[in-house]
């Protein structure tokens, strides 16, 4: 029995993007540009843990989270899901991903399916549940995130908040070992953010294991056991919310927290 639900050991990930460099006259030259998004990051999550990663945008938080779900394959290092090493050659990644719930910043619901269809699809086709049971579990999940009024709506017909809660339902319906949430509220306006945060708070109360990338500080303070300050591809500082809200040890974290808290109070 492994101690951790999920663990990342010394993970590295570099990706290259093509930047268009404005050349002379009308010729724009694409230049390859290397981004070191994850540099030697390790992280352990126990059952029932709620950990929150925050830091400036473009620092590689999302890339790290995608590496955890093996949606991006790390260049170096290991990812463990329970006892299973996902980075080992021959690991069954599809099976592993079925045990990990993933919630996207830009939601990414399946556009051709209704809310119910979105949640049901993986239950039927990945977990191979019989029709009745899949339907029941999908309805339960949708109920839990309080969107039972739009089960027959298509993503295009929902508000952003409803769509993101369906996204959460899609992630939790499979009873995953852990849920990874990549800035679940940052694409929503403040009013809709509240709905989604309420849903996450409910999940937290039930003891759901979660790793969340977010800048929702009041929420973090309330539910997170541990906050992880992430900058330039590295974990800069780790600690309980009280540490960050009172006196972070590193200057960089201090700076960032001041800025974030000022912003929140100004609103």
């Amino acid at each position: 029995m492994a101690d951790f639900v999920m663990e990342a050991r010394n993970v590295y990930k570099t990706y290259s993007i093509k930047k268009i460099k404005k050349g002379d006259a009308a010729c724009n030259v694409p230049v390859k540009h290397q981004v070191e998004a994850v540099k030697n990051v390790s992280l352990q999550i126990r059952k029932g843990d709620i950990k929150l990663i925050f830091g400036p945008s473009g620092s590689g938080k999302s890339t790290f989270l995608r590496c955890m779900a093996m949606l991006d394959i790390p260049d170096k290092g290991e990812i463990y899901l329970g006892d299973e090493c996902l980075t080992a050659p021959g690991a069954d990644l599809n099976k592993a991903r079925a045990r990990i719930g993933f919630v996207f910043q830009h939601i990414y619901l399946f556009r051709h399916l209704t809310a119910l269809g979105n949640v049901e699809l993986a239950l039927r086709q990945v977990l191979k549940l019989p029709k009745e049971e899949a339907r029941k579990r999908a309805l339960d999940a949708l109920n839990e995130v309080k969107v039972s009024d739009c089960i027959n709506k298509y993503p295009a017909q929902m508000s952003g908040g409803q769509a993101q809660r369906v996204g959460i339902a899609r992630a939790i319906a499979r009873n995953p070992d852990i849920i990874l949430l990549d800035e679940p509220t940052s694409a929503l306006d403040p009013e809709l953010t509240g709905e989604v945060i309420d849903t996450l708070r409910d999940l937290a109360k039930e003891g759901t294991t979660m790793l969340i990338v977010s800048h929702e500080m009041p929420f973090a303070r309330e539910v997170a056991e541990e906050m992880i300050f992430y900058d330039e591809g590295k974990v800069v500082e780790t600690g309980p919310p009280s540490l960050f809200f009172n006196a972070p040890n590193t200057d960089r974290a201090k700076q960032f927290m001041t800025r974030i808290i000022n912003r929140t109070t100004r609103e």
Partner: peptide
């Protein structure tokens, strides 16, 4: 994105 979302729920 649709492809990634599909893989995130466990599809090959």
């Amino acid at each position: 994105e649709q492809m990634i979302a599909g893989m995130s729920v466990g599809f090959s």
